[in-house]
Simulated assay, not measured.
Amino acid sequence: MITMTKTKQLTLIQAITDGMRTMLQEKEEVVILGEDVGKNGGVFRATEGLQEEFGEKRVFDTPLSEAGIIGSSIGMAMNGLLPIAEIQFLGFIYPAYEQIMTQATRMRYRTKGVFTVPLVIRAPYGAGVRAPEIHSDSMEALFTHMPGIKVVCPSNPYDAKGLLIAAIQDPDPVLFMEPLRLYRSVRDEVPEEKYEIEIGSGKYLREGEDVTVIAWGAMVNVAIKAAEQAEEKGITCDIIDLRTLYPIDKDIIAESVQKTGCCVIVHEAPATGGLGNDIISILNDTSFLYMKSPIERVTGADVHVPFWALEEHNIPTPKRVLEAIHKVTNF
């Protein structure tokens, strides 16, 4: 007898809610805390209805203090709970950086494995929604340079639920980055049941022969649109969604580029110090002799995310990615 998996059409934000609900139902240790996550359901309604369903002891509001939210969550995690801490925007996380860097990521090392910190930090990030200053920052590289924490960034609803469930069950802290511009702009078939996606595993979204395009989060759709336009000119692309930024899937990166010989990396964070530089280092270590052309990066500029009128000029576009694809394939 074949058992059919029931699915439902969900947006990315709905899939995140579904993942949290799944784990709240399964494990009494799971708690959710953050600013306005209770009665109001969070600034983007990711926790809508969860306090009513599971009670104020498991889904509760905190003062407006990111350092306090993370500091409290570390204590909870060290004492048997599985906290999911919401930071309203990634750009608001800076006051909590010290708690993450000096406490959450080091506790396993500091105590020789006696304590771990199974903490998930949810943080919407990225531009393209015309938010005010600090709300649109894309500073993932601050955390990929931080040993002891995993950094996850889904690009679609199916991956969002599976990766979030895996993150909640991980024994170490996980920064779960949620691309703002994808919250309600994409839908996907998402299983109703519990499932996990392995943290640290990238994914091929398209397969081609001529160039590898590497992206994550909201930039995945930008890369796909550029690849579709390149195909009209006879250029086929491997599109890789990293999904996890740390630990990064070095194998899928090397495998693809060793096949195509050309590579374009797309991210909306500033170019200097961005994760694209680490990917180039990986390719220098693993695939240098396979390269047919220099690697191209399509990134945000080395500026703060501009105000509304200029925001779109800073974010990588399909046109810019397509130009990079033509550049590496015509070298």
Rank of each mutant, 00 (worst) to 15 (best):
M101N: 13
L175F: 05
I13Y: 10
R108G: 01
V220G: 02
E52H: 08
R297L: 07
P191C: 08
E189W: 15
G42I: 10
G126F: 06
I214R: 12
D285Q: 15
Y94F: 14
K39G: 08
A269H: 03
L180C: 10
T11P: 05
T102C: 10
A223R: 03
C237W: 00
S293Y: 06
V220C: 02
D210T: 12
V117I: 11
K250A: 01
N277G: 15
L82W: 02
D172Y: 15
R45T: 04
I280V: 15
Q103M: 11
M146H: 06
A269P: 03
L82E: 02
H313C: 08
A131C: 13
N277D: 04
I282T: 13
K6V: 10
A324T: 09
V211K: 08
T111V: 08
V37C: 02
T102I: 11
S136E: 04
N79Q: 11
T236K: 11
P157E: 00
G34M: 06
Y158Q: 02
H304S: 13
A46S: 11
P157A: 04
A131R: 13
T116L: 05
A254Y: 06
F307R: 15
D36E: 10
M146E: 03
L283F: 03
G202V: 05
N156I: 07
A127W: 08
Y183T: 07
P179Y: 01
I165D: 00
I248K: 12
S73M: 02
E52D: 12
E323V: 11
Y94K: 07
F60M: 11
V222E: 03
T144I: 06
G162N: 07
V305W: 05
G49C: 09
L289K: 15
P318V: 07
G91F: 02
V305K: 11
T102D: 13
C262G: 04
V257L: 01
F176G: 09
N330M: 12
G128K: 09
I100C: 02
K27L: 04
K250S: 01
G300C: 08
V305T: 13
D18V: 14
E193Q: 14
L205R: 12
V59N: 04
A167H: 02
I168M: 06
V43P: 03
K161Q: 01
S185D: 01
T260H: 01
T3L: 11
V129Q: 05
M101P: 12
V186M: 09
V303H: 06
I214H: 09
K112F: 00
V305C: 11
Q88T: 04
I252E: 01
T7Q: 12
I32H: 01
E98K: 12
R108A: 05
A226C: 01
A15N: 00
V114M: 12
P132N: 07
F176C: 09
G75F: 05
V129R: 09
F60I: 12
I224R: 13
G208Q: 03
G162Y: 00
G68N: 06
Q229C: 10
L310D: 13
D241E: 02
G234I: 09
P118G: 09
L10P: 05
M139L: 14
K57G: 05
G42C: 08
L283C: 05
G38R: 09
G71L: 02
D18H: 14
E29H: 11
T317F: 08
E209M: 02
F288M: 10
L90W: 00
